[in-house]
């Protein structure tokens, strides 16, 4: 594999990461709700709150990391043109959209009880 191929692969991952993080966050909290609600009723709300908090912190960290790699690459290859630069721009915006998506996912937990 050539270096340019590896760089391109990095670009690809940067583009795919944000929405993938959103997807994993969504499926995690959904699966957690499904699993926790099978168990004893008493602990459900606390367990759910913790799961959502942990999943959200993990997702935000991963998004931040992606953003950091974008800035690093921009600093390293300030002159790069064409696909790489373009994909980095795309990745930036996808991070924003994914953040909004994650915010929307956790919003209902403020209002709704677990397992009702």
């Amino acid at each position: 594999m050539s270096d340019t191929f590896k760089l391109s692969l990095g670009n690809l991952l940067q583009v795919l990461a944000p929405p993938l993080i959103w997807f994993l966050h969504l499926t995690t909290v959904y699966a957690a709700e499904a699993l926790i609600c099978i168990g004893p009723a008493g602990a459900a709300a606390t367990m759910m709150a913790w799961t959502i908090a942990l999943a959200t912190v993990a997702a935000l960290t991963a998004l931040l990391l992606t953003a950091w790699t974008l800035h690093r690459d921009n600093a390293r290859h300030p002159q790069s043109l064409g696909s790489s630069r373009f994909l980095r721009g795309v990745s930036h915006l996808l991070i924003l959209l994914s953040l909004l998506g994650i915010a929307w996912t956790i919003l209902p937990t403020v209002f709704l009880p677990t397992c009702a």
């Binding site: 909004l100 929307w104 919003l107 209902p108 209002f111 709704l112 009880p113 009702a116």
Partner: peptide, 20 residues
């Protein structure tokens, strides 16, 4: 859309809660 859909989402969830 981000603003209006947030309003809608909160409203929908709030109605679900009052339904419960």
């Amino acid at each position: 859309p981000a603003v209006t859909l947030t309003v809608l989402l909160v409203y929908g969830v709030w109605v679900m809660r009052s339904n419960l």
